[in-house]
Amino acid sequence: MESLHLVHIKILAADLLSLTAQPTSPPSFLRCGRTVARAEIVGVVVSRDRREKFLRFLVDDGTGCIPCVLWLNHQYLNANNSSRVSDSDPTAEMALKMSEEVRLGTLLRVRGKIAVYRGAIQITVRDVVLEKDPNVEVLHWLQCVRMAKECYDFPSSAQQAS
Rank of each mutant, 00 (worst) to 15 (best):
D133K: 02
L12Q: 07
T35N: 09
R34I: 04
P155W: 14
M1W: 06
L16W: 09
S88F: 01
S47V: 04
G62H: 09
H5I: 01
P67H: 08
T124G: 09
R31N: 03
E131W: 02
V44F: 04
A158D: 13
R38Q: 12
G64M: 13
A39M: 01
A79T: 05
V116M: 11
S86P: 00
L142Y: 07
V69P: 01
L17E: 02
W141Q: 00
P155M: 06
R111S: 03
K53A: 15
I121Y: 08
R84L: 15
P23N: 09
L139H: 01
A148C: 01
F57N: 08
Y152Q: 03
L77V: 08
Q159C: 05
S157I: 15
L72I: 07
L139M: 03
S28R: 03
K113R: 08
H8K: 14
N80Q: 06
R103L: 04
E40G: 10
M1N: 09
S156F: 13
N78M: 03
L77W: 15
E2H: 10
A120T: 07
A161K: 15
F57D: 13
K113Q: 14
R126L: 01
L72F: 12
R31P: 00
E40H: 07
M98L: 06
L17Q: 08
P27N: 07
Y117S: 04
D61G: 11
V44W: 10
S88H: 11
N81G: 06
R38S: 07
I9N: 10
N78V: 05
L12A: 08
V102I: 02
T24S: 15
P134C: 07
D15Q: 00
G33C: 09
I66C: 14
A13V: 09
M1H: 05
S162Y: 10
L55C: 14
H5D: 06
D127V: 03
G105W: 05
V136Y: 01
R118S: 11
S3G: 04
G62V: 05
H140P: 00
L107I: 11
T24W: 03
E150Q: 05
G105D: 10
S25Y: 13
H8G: 02
N78H: 03
P90L: 12
G33E: 05
Q75A: 10
T63P: 10
E2N: 12
N81V: 11
P90M: 13
P67W: 04
D89C: 14
Y117R: 02
S25N: 04
R103D: 09
M98V: 05
L96G: 11
K149P: 02
A79P: 00
G112S: 02
R109I: 04
Q122G: 08
Q122D: 10
V69T: 10
S83E: 04
N135I: 07
T63I: 08
K97L: 02
V46A: 13
N81I: 09
A120G: 04
Y117Q: 07
A95T: 01
T20C: 13
R111C: 12
E137H: 11
A37N: 01
G64R: 05
S28Y: 02
R118P: 03
A79R: 12
L72A: 06
K132H: 11
T35H: 03
Y152N: 01
P134G: 06
Q22W: 04
T63M: 10
